[in-house]
Amino acid sequence: MRNSHTLNLGTGLFVLLGFAALFFLTTQTTSRGLSFGSKPHYDVTAKFDNVGDLKVGSPVSMAGVEIGRVSDISFDSKDYKAVVVMRLDSRYNQIPSDSDASIYTQGLLGGKFVGLTAGGGETYLKDKDHIDFTQSAFVLENLIGQFLANFGKTAAGAGTDTAATPAAAPAATPAKEKTK
């Protein structure tokens, strides 16, 4: 009969090591860190003409600091805009209500994220608030189209005849829009 004392000790150590490894994998390799359960948060909505390939879970940051995540992306069939719900950390609850939200790209070819730039208002964003000022995602095809359109204009020379504009009609250029 194998010594049951060593048996129990060996098994206990093994199981302990195994759970330590599981703990390591779930906390040290993921961005969850040591957080258990969801942190206090509040949700803010914003509408965009084009979200590009922004994904649920993409970060929301301000001044380069991550303050939350995109929790939902849907489509409003009434005004044909994308509705993005952002879940912000409750620690950051002093964001002015007139801040604007823009969709940026990480690095040169990375994923999309939402960047907030502070406005000057006195009131702060609360749960279920709406951000009115948005800027849509940068779409490469639009930029090329616009570039070609401008190129065509200058190529036509000093002539007032603008009929020489090439066929590539530029899509809506990124501009600040007041959306509701």
Partner: peptide
Amino acid sequence: IIAMPLLAAIFSMIGI
């Protein structure tokens, strides 16, 4: 079945 997931986790951790 108890040992396997624990062993796999240990393998991954040491591998990292």
